[in-house]
Design a protein around this nucleic acid. Structure first.
Lengths: 328, 328
DNA sequence: AGCATTGCCGCAAACGTTTGTTGTGTAAAA
DNA sequence: TTTTACACAACAAACGTTTGCGGCAATGCT
């Protein structure tokens, strides 16, 4: 079965193609009577415009690219979910690519985006990506790029991030307000700007508000490593643990469950998280919320601004709130 | 900056557009000397074919649609991840849509797919979807549809599912092999074919292998409901709990953690899962693996078969294996 | 030399739209 | 009545490809 086109409708009605096209877009040049006839037939024939033709003609194809390290990740998922929602509302579609946190794949994906002549790109940097040339090239082609979560440190790019500084500060304050003295803080890869900001804010807050704090900062690169470190360091009886991410939290919690510690009596725990993981435990883990969903919405509006000609480079940080579980 | 086209290359080289086109596809009609010149210039100018033009001309646009209830779900994510990988390899791109488990949104998404003239569709039914007309219409348009996970009960559609029967049977056997007598089994929405199959297989296995089993079957529709039920029923000291999904498992585990039960001594737990959630706990929960990733690969090859003209209706069930944690 | 063959390349149509321009016919203004 | 205006609709070019067909020169064959 071949699909119906403007031409087909035109032939049936004995009108010209352009008349059909205009009628369907409610152009004032076409009389109401004709319009009605056309619209009726179009509906009856289930006319659907051919997007390829439209995009070819308009030199614009309403597709956004989105590059994430992995799609199997609650934070990025909710980010994607938000962008997808907005895209649909605004008549865009989405091309989702995974980098696997590899720079090579990331570059490959960017190329794919170029080939597909995307309208704009949302991208989250791979850990090792240091060279932003491919992105600059996109900008030259007038394709806006919005970085999210893991963003370039330098360069004037559009960025939306979770409020790293704020989030870490909130978490630290929550710990201090409970009068904890012996704090274990787990962070991720120390090369990431996201980590650097969180460490800095966390440290500063601890130092500012009290002198008698014993703070130990750790960098781990996986859930398993977090678990192993926790296995050792829990022997030293810290009274509070901070986890900068879900991945780390799950490792630490495994160690906690292993030792059958009684949260929050034996130990307080707080994390920075999207919210899903902390709520799996009992008591639920108190966390500072960094919503991928909100971030997605922010990123999208930033994208829209770019497309509307805003050349202003934005650097937005989503705000975070403390969500109380029973772990403090 | 405007992108380079065949025409531009043709003008620079004083050749015709068709020659350029053929040269770039290594057509035998073009001499090696000319080919080389053309390829060189094309590279220098970073020529990228315009996909819209190609698809318009070829009446095919290499895009698969994929409809899932939610993208923020480990199982569907890994399914999507697999399909995405394969798509990329095979030069397709992917349009990912969320139904939110609502029939309305599902239908809306199907329409969107039609508009975008997708090459094929992967779809997971919403819980309440009973009418498959929209899908039939796609088939009439020669657009293959591969259902996965939640599939239509009736009708001759292509389906790939996790091996529901096998998975439930394996889980039941695992329980029986540990000589458990007092079993609590949690299942999801009882209208879903996926649930029906699992219940049937689980029951049958229990009945076949022993008469003295006390089996209680529950249907819950959310993690919270599972938790509440568990709160009550754990008072009756079952010696084994079965959870048909991650969502249920998380609810049950919260109750278990709340009561500070000692797994597996106080209670054995087993689940059907993709594997991520069970590994969060200590001890890790024993589960029957239903890999979204594998399912995705299966679905994709099924799709490819359809596109290659296979009119044979396939109904594939992925096999499952028991993954031992420490919860039995 | 005459003829067919072959190698190489260009012409032009088609895919389905959008949109600037042009061409009607009719009604209002002069 | 002639002019002016306007409402309505058709024409045609363009977006960037692909591909059947036809053309022309050089080569091979009798």
């Amino acid at each position: 079965m071949t699909s119906t086109t403007l031409k087909k409708i035109a032939e049936v009605l004995g009108l010209s193609i352009s008349t059909i096209s205009r009628a369907l877009k409610n152009h004032p040049d076409i009389s109401d009577k004709t319009k009605q006839k056309i619209v009726e037939l179009a509906n009856a024939l289930e006319y659907e415009p051919n997007v390829n033709a439209i995009h070819l003609r308009n030199k614009s194809n309403n597709v956004f690219g989105i590059i994430v390290p992995s799609i199997s990740n609650y934070f990025y998922d909710s980010f994607i979910a938000a962008v997808e929602e907005e895209s649909r509302k605004n008549n865009y579609s989405l091309m989702i690519l995974q980098s696997g946190d590899k720079t090579d794949a990331e570059i490959q994906n960017i190329k794919l985006c170029r080939q597909n002549r995307i309208t704009g790109l949302f991208s989250c940097l791979s850990t090792d990506t240091k060279n932003y040339e491919a992105y600059s090239k996109l900008k030259e082609l007038n394709i806006p790029v919005i970085f999210f979560d893991k963003v370039p440190e330098e360069g004037n790019f559009n960025k939306v991030t979770v409020g790293d500084t704020l989030a870490a500060t909130l978490a630290a304050k929550a710990i201090l307000s409970k009068n904890k003295k012996n704090i274990l803080a787990f962070f991720g890869n120390e090369n990431l700007s996201i980590t650097k900001k969180r460490v800095a804010a966390f440290k500063q807050t601890c130092n500012e508000n009290s002198e008698e704090i014993k703070l130990k900062i750790l960098h781990v690169s996986s859930s398993l490593e977090a678990e192993n470190m926790a296995d050792k360091l829990l022997l030293k009886k810290p009274d509070a643990i901070f986890c900068m991410s879900d991945e780390i939290l799950t490792g630490v919690m495994k160690s906690v469950l292993k030792k059958r510690l009684n949260i929050p009596y034996d130990l307080s725990i707080i994390a920075i998280s999207n919210g899903y993981i902390p709520k799996l435990y009992y008591p639920e883990i108190t966390y500072v919320e960094t919503s991928g969903y909100k971030l997605g919405k922010l990123a999208f509006s930033s994208m829209l601004a770019c497309l509307n000609g805003s050349t202003f480079i934005q650097e937005i940080a989503a705000d975070s709130i403390l969500v109380e579980g029973g772990s403090m």
